[in-house]
Design a protein around this nucleic acid. Structure first.
Lengths: 350, 350
DNA sequence: ATGAAAGCGCTAACAG
DNA sequence: CTGTTAGCGCTTTCAT
């Protein structure tokens, strides 16, 4: 009797339910898990006991004995970036739909906190990891590989895990081609520090190819940390104003993502450079904001929900051993969305 | 010997480390937890064994025996809403700083998935729950209360848990007063379905008071689901165009959050209603987007990071029993940020 | 159809 | 200072 009152404050355990229903642990367990081979009457008695006690299985204990969890680790670059926010939301929903719980860690783009985050996920024995951004840090790879946990890179990449993404190179190409087709020749590539990973490289490559194939000007890379007035242009520090208003100025920009593109548009507004009259801008991602009439950003759209769905399906299949073997790559389509941030090159600028 | 090789595929356990270092389980445990009373030499030997084996403590096992986890459940209204995204990010960071891991669940604003999410969190035996949005569903309350897990409502509210938020009523008042002081009299309150919770009610109350105190027109509530052309006005369906361009039209709007405000601005742009010339708009939250030159939304700013920090400190204190007793409420300051979406009432509209 | 027993990997007294 | 011994709450054979 003394013992049986212990269920009052603490969470009731399977044992409490068992004694309440007058059966054994295992029977309760069988009922909870919905296994067959339990008579209807006992099943009912157990159910009642569960309700009366407000019993809720302890996932921790279950997962300890099963030696695997149903938690999915999700590594996010920057939750405040609308692209990641949307992805995170989709990932969470699809994970839940397949019976997994998402555990996010935000890395702020730096590989130190990325490593720390992955470390934490691993200690929690996550069943798999979804990278929504990956710095490329080899230590992270080491850790993950050593623990043999299924990994998928969604909208980012590495060779040592499954990848689900758009064809970033093609995205870079069609975005740049749109500019070139509009008559632009001095087209720059813009990136902000947070996202200089594998997919950034692929987008740059697409940009480079498009520039080369069209016999346009030499490729030019702008690495900018908004809202600074300066940036590194092909490695050397210069003012943005010089780039967009000086002689031999850039007339169009392909940005590696929408946040960068919008930041640039903001800069242009601030210093009186007109978009698209003075400079055309193309982004990447098609975040919701890009569609606002006041922003109207031409951009390369990624099918976010599709990416999330396929990514989750991928890790889940690995976890559930429905798929084995070497890393797979799944590519989905990108498409250009034309809005008002781009326009044909003005005659006097040719 | 057969047994000792078992560490190869599976995760090495504390026992593997123990035998490798030639000590007992507990000694390893003591080293891992950094307890004093372990000689420097054994400590070193254990450390070496840990590195060699790549041992990583199983948090699950630890938490099972300690009967508490270091996971914090975070209930988010809509991760795709920039306000929540920013909050989520801050919450994650502050949680990590205090040694907790965040487990998010997105509720899409509906109480059904909110309940399911909380259920999952509870099964994972989270140490505490942070609500970034709360529907008010009594079943959720039931569940949480019954499990006696510390709860904090950040930027939202309920009477049965700690609250950390801005003074929403005051926010509603100063936002509305700004409009009234600019000469507006027919000021409406705008809300979108996702956020009609306790803080929405408080903001509405602040709005109502301001309207009444100033002898302005009767309060008017617009419930709108963007991007529809219609909305419920004080309970009856009407077209938005009628509201903003018909006779006795509304000349200013106080929106319960920035997302709603921006959606309205977007609608206005689409149908040719000028902001602020034809209608002034005030938002709530001051999301990053609101600060863009092209959006320039006047809004009531919430100190997001401060809210997150205090909220985490609050649950953490409860969890760690540094604070006991009845629910506490912590209020932090709101402030009005004036931008270009508001202007004095045009003479011909008075 | 049900129960008994042996762990999962770890912490927490308590001995030595 | 270090080792021994119980569990934490559950799943999972294996008997009955």
């Amino acid at each position: 009797m003394i013992d049986s009152t212990s269920a009052e404050r603490r969470h009731p355990t399977i044992l409490d339910v068992a004694s309440q229903a007058g059966v054994s642990k295992s029977t309760v367990s069988n009922v909870v898990r919905g296994l067959p081979g339990v008579s209807e009457s006992t099943r009912r008695r157990v159910r009642t006991a569960i309700d009366e006690l407000g019993y809720r299985p302890n996932v921790l204990a279950r997962q300890l004995v099963q030696r695997r969890t149903s938690i999915l680790g999700v590594v996010v670059g920057d939750l405040a970036n609308p692209f990641f926010a949307e992805m995170a939301k989709s990932v969470e929903r699809h994970a839940a739909a397949r019976g997994y719980t998402a555990m996010f860690c935000n890395t702020e783009g730096d590989s130190e906190s990325e490593l720390a985050g992955v470390e934490t996920l691993l200690q929690h024995r996550v069943a798999g990891i979804v990278f929504l951004a990956f710095s490329g840090d080899p230590r992270t790879m080491q850790e993950v590989l050593h623990h043999q946990v299924p990994v998928v890179f969604v909208s980012c990449g590495a060779e040592w895990g499954d990848v689900v993404s758009v064809d970033d190179e093609r995205g870079g190409r069609i975005g740049t081609m749109h500019l070139i087709d509009s008559g632009h020749r001095r087209v720059a590539y813009l990136s902000i520090p947070e996202l200089e990973d594998e997919s950034d490289r692929a987008r740059w490559e697409g940009y480079r190819q498009a520039m080369k194939g069209a016999g346009a000007g030499a490729p030019m890379r702008i690495s900018w940390s908004p809202p600074s007035d300066q940036a590194r242009i092909d490695g050397s520090e210069r003012t943005l104003l010089e780039v967009f208003a000086g002689r031999g100025r850039v007339t169009a920009v392909f940005a590696s993502n929408d946040v960068a593109a919008i930041a640039l548009q903001e800069f242009a507004d601030r210093v009186g450079i007109r978009v698209p009259e003075d400079v055309s801008i193309v982004g990447f991602d098609d975040v919701p904001m890009a569609g606002l009439a006041r922003i109207a950003l031409t951009t390369v759209a990624q099918p976010r929900d599709e990416l999330a769905r396929l990514g989750i399906a991928d890790v889940a299949d690995r976890i559930e051993r429905k798929v084995k073997g070497p890393p797979r790559t799944t590519l989905v389509d990108v498409s250009l969305v034309t809005r008002r941030s781009t326009a044909p090159l003005q005659a006097d600028l040719a």
